[in-house]
Simulated assay, not measured.
Amino acid sequence: MSFSVPVQLELHNEPLPLSSPFRISGHVFTDMPATIVTLRHDGHVGRGEAAGVYYLQDAPPTMLATLEGLRARIEAGIDRQALRTLLPPGGARNALDLALWDLEAQCTGIPAWRIAGLPAPQPLVTTFTVGADAPATMADRAAAYTDAIALKLKLTGEVDLDIERVAAVRARCPDAWLGVDANQGYDAATLPRLLPALLAARVALLEQPCRRGHEEDLDGIAHVLPFAADESILSLEELEARHQRFDVINIKLDKCGGLTEGLLMARRARALGKKVMVGNMAGTSLAMAPAFVLGQLCDIVDLDGPTFLVADREPSVRYSGGCIDIPSGLWGRLG
């Protein structure tokens, strides 16, 4: 954590349009803008990308302004532990944290995975996500992922329609690992109606069934399949406070504020007896690469963000055989 050098800071935002609208519970996305942080030191360059947390109004314009306001402090030199006290969890800290990781790897010649105390990374099975739509449309989209081993379906809280969606996809994809993400769409009254249908369809994971701040809705409901926290647990502090109601913790670097905090969360979740998942807020391959490092500690990996974009970066992550892998030259001296 002690790596700190004076840097030249460059900041900009990118629009990152999606190739088609993407629907989840309560939102339809047509783009996923991101803030890009570039740090330069002695001929070396470190980069980080973050989208922020849309449901907290943590968006690139605000993220950019936050980082610009700290320019003098950043350019004087800051290490990743000091950054955890300087900025709260969220997109601004994430973008800068990832750039610091990348810069350290470039300056020292030590890959990010080794700095993180991990073995050399291996390709990871990733889920491929199907946005909420008509059941037949979702089944078609799921079946179009011909290489996929694992699928994740977005639900909306419309119980009867969600049941049809899950059944339609399972009928078309009988052998795939299947998870569903309710994105806060259910409550104590509606969730018990959904659960039998998920069991019948052999669904392996229910992500974020209830609204953030209403986790008590889960009290008294049997976990007939694993429940995962996404919006309910953003950071290490919230993990300590809210883990009891969940079986799986979905860590996203944008939520927690970077790979530094993400690694702390994954290791702490393990110590608490939880399974660990890594997810994403969409984004290019530059955002997936550091999450791939975290993914080496995870039971479930959801890193399909670039597949929804009109265009990705080069070099880009590789998807093959239902897995994600990272090429050399992208970030953190991986590959």
Rank of each mutant, 00 (worst) to 15 (best):
I115G: 00
R267N: 11
A222K: 00
I326L: 09
D325S: 15
A139M: 11
F29N: 12
M63S: 09
V301K: 04
Q244G: 08
C298F: 09
C210H: 04
A139R: 10
L67Q: 05
G220E: 00
L330C: 12
V166F: 11
R47K: 15
C210G: 04
H12K: 01
C256P: 03
L206E: 01
Q81I: 08
R80V: 06
G283E: 01
C323L: 08
G69P: 10
A65E: 15
H27S: 15
L11H: 04
A136P: 15
S320Y: 02
I24W: 11
G185S: 11
D254M: 08
L153Q: 05
I251P: 06
R313V: 15
S20W: 04
P6T: 10
T85Q: 13
A132Q: 02
L225I: 09
T146N: 11
E216N: 03
A311S: 08
L334Y: 13
P174I: 01
L96F: 06
P306G: 10
A76Q: 10
A241F: 00
E215P: 00
A228I: 03
S19I: 07
V125T: 10
R268L: 02
A188I: 06
L194N: 10
A144L: 08
L294G: 09
T127Y: 02
L18A: 04
D325Y: 07
G283I: 01
R245S: 12
R93T: 04
N183C: 13
A282V: 10
L195I: 15
L39T: 09
M288C: 09
D58H: 12
S2N: 12
T129H: 02
A311Y: 02
P306K: 14
L9I: 01
S328Y: 09
I110P: 06
C256I: 03
G131C: 01
L83H: 04
N250V: 06
L253H: 11
N13F: 01
A82V: 10
D42L: 14
D181F: 05
R212C: 05
A289L: 05
L303E: 06
A139V: 13
D31T: 12
G77K: 02
E158I: 05
A82W: 05
L234I: 00
I251R: 05
A136I: 10
I163G: 03
S20H: 12
E238F: 03
T307M: 15
D312F: 13
R23T: 14
C256K: 00
A182W: 04
D219H: 00
A182Y: 04
R193H: 12
A142G: 15
Q296R: 08
T62E: 14
Q81F: 09
V45S: 08
L253N: 06
V301Y: 03
R93F: 01
A266P: 03
V180K: 02
L161V: 10
A116P: 01
A228P: 00
H223M: 01
R172G: 07
W101Q: 12
R202F: 02
V166C: 08
V5M: 07
A51Q: 11
G220T: 04
G262I: 09
D102P: 05
A50P: 14
I233R: 06
E216A: 11
V169S: 11
L70H: 14
